[in-house]
Design a protein around this nucleic acid. Structure first.
Lengths: 339, 339
DNA sequence: GTGAAAGCGCTAACAA
DNA sequence: TTGTTAGCGCTTTCAC
């Protein structure tokens, strides 16, 4: 049987309150008393019972992270960063997968499992701005992603429009004029796809290049196969293009595969740029120029902001919207030499 | 304030025991009583307090999953499968990253966090057979991986030797005789690298092909860049080869990138086979022939076995070793037409 | 600076 | 079939 506070108190010859004080680093304890307690703890290999602690204190020391799917590299790398960050802050992470399904996302927000965590970092994919009232939950919640803006919670996200605009401008600076897009979502205005497409259009407009709807490849999901399919459709349509902006790296890598199968050279015939800066983008053939959307910073900030909310007693603190910095990572797929 | 059992009991006009019985599906309750309780629960939107429940029952409804790193696709896809499987069984997963570091792995086994979980699925990478006594922990533990065999716990793993042998035989059947290996670990006997190298040697021997140490590319880690580096070293050494067996997919994809940079065609000049069947292997250029080591089955089995241990009162149940089935997934990188 | 004691919300042994 | 009651191990208020 595991040792309890009482056992430690008995061995140390003090009351349980004193032991509790030692464990919780309460400052005013006589050093000799403290040492006796510490010795007793060591002797018994005492460990606080976390269930009892959380029953009493209402805190679990665990935060939740909800993502669509870990097998999507972006979210795996995000989860990795969140876990590392949480570790530095001494808390543990419980991961939930939503499949990007709206109903499951909403359900998760009120699931009894939320009791296991002190707060939630929530990467929404299925919900949209109309659902933002569902975010008015009774616990600290930090929203990620670009589906909902101006909601009732803290929100950490990236500069989608600016970054997509910069990506497009990068291609334009290379002399490309017929820039295809892979991964657009029909009629979407916000959301990663909508915002990034807007950045693309802004860049075209600024450069005086007309927008050609024939250059836009639509997909429902952003898996690799969707990128490949969209590129196949684009090639089959016969539309001409000299560059492609994939709305994320996974899509872009799928599209590049199809381009090369069709005998087109990257970047000579078609330059390519992605979005996310996955680890993989460094090792594709050719290596992929992409946008680093500040994933590490997003993870770090989300954890910090969530823990602040958890620690804060001020419930009226207004929601914050925090944007991470992006940067273009230039690699072979847009190397100018081949332009 | 959240409703408690007492509130429900009061509203329903019964005792808390009756409410508890209803919640825990205790069979002998009069239907009318049950309905009254259910109505009260609905009225108050009552949810059981999980901390109190686990303090009392000693169960948390959470299982732990320890992996080296989520940003390694293999482990991301494994975690995905474990979470989905756990969900089907009604339990939640808490993920820990060890970085594959032996000290952190050992520490994790006795971390206070283990109290947050009813058991652990543990993918060891840094520990080895000499450390197997550390696995004698006081809670249900299912080991994954190939670092420790014959340990004191249940172990779910793959047929590394057989699968690697089959992979090598697949290349030999293509007429390849000079088969390079990428990702070997100096002096390792067990562990993924050691076992897979053994399967490779067995296949060579069976085919009467002499083993040539010059064909073995060593790496410390199995990231993509390690595969690229090892292949670069192999090419620089001037050794001739007509096929490559990458000990995992990530390594193989890195190596393929370098081969193609060097102007070699896959599979015409060099056939390539990997190990893991990552999602990515379907979309590389060329698509990658690989071994599906039964990852879904491993995840499913690990969760099932762990939950059995948690539910079982028989502590003397001997440890089981369970091997998943593998299969070769043939794709372009070993297409015979180009042989 | 330290101790005594209440009680967080639940489960389960025991009673009725 | 349902009720009473004793803790699970901890934090915390209030004394001393």
């Amino acid at each position: 049987m595991a040792a309890t506070l009482h056992d430690v108190a008995r061995i140390a010859g003090v009351s349980i309150k004193t032991v509790s004080n030692v464990i919780n680093d309460y400052p005013h304890i006589r050093p000799t008393t403290k040492q006796r307690v510490l010795d007793a703890i060591a002797e018994l290999d005492y460990r606080p019972n976390l269930s009892a602690r959380s029953l009493r204190s209402g805190r679990t020391g665990v935060i939740g992270l909800a993502v669509p799917e870990l097998s999507l590299s972006y979210f795996a790398e995000l989860a990795d960063a969140v876990i590392r960050s949480a570790e530095r802050h001494g808390v543990t992470v419980l991961i939930e997968q939503t499949g990007g399904d709206r109903a499951r996302e909403i359900e998760l927000l009120t699931s009894p499992r939320r009791q296991l965590t002190d707060g939630l970092i929530f990467s929404a994919l299925g919900m949209d701005s109309d659902d933002s009232e569902y975010l008015r939950v009774g616990y600290p919640l930090v929203l990620l992603g670009e589906r909902i803006f101006g909601g009732p919670t803290d929100h950490v996200t990236m500069r989608n429009v600016d970054a997509a605009r910069a990506a497009t401008e990068h291609l334009i600076a290379l002399g490309r004029r017929r820039i295809a897009v892979i991964g657009a979502h029909e009629g979407e205005v916000i959301g990663s796809a909508g915002l990034r497409l807007r950045g693309y259009r802004e860049a075209l407009e600024a450069a005086g290049i007309p927008f050609d709807p024939a250059l836009i490849g639509y997909t429902t999901l952003w898996h690799r196969s969707n990128g490949a399919d969209a590129m196949r459709a684009l090639l089959a349509s016969g539309v001409e293009f000299d560059a492609v902006f994939g709305l994320n790296d996974t899509l872009t890598l799928g599209a590049m595969r199809v381009l090369q199968e069709a005998g087109l050279r990257i970047p000579k015939d078609v330059a390519a740029i992605g979005f996310d800066d996955l680890d993989e983008a460094q090792y594709s053939l050719p290596t992929l120029t992409t946008i680093d959307p500040g994933r590490e910073e997003i993870a770090e900030t989300a954890v910090r902001v969530l823990l602040e909310r958890i620690a804060s007693t001020d419930l009226a603190l207004p929601p914050r919207e925090i944007l991470a910095d992006f940067r273009i990572v230039e690699r072979e797929s847009t190397a100018p030499a081949a332009a």
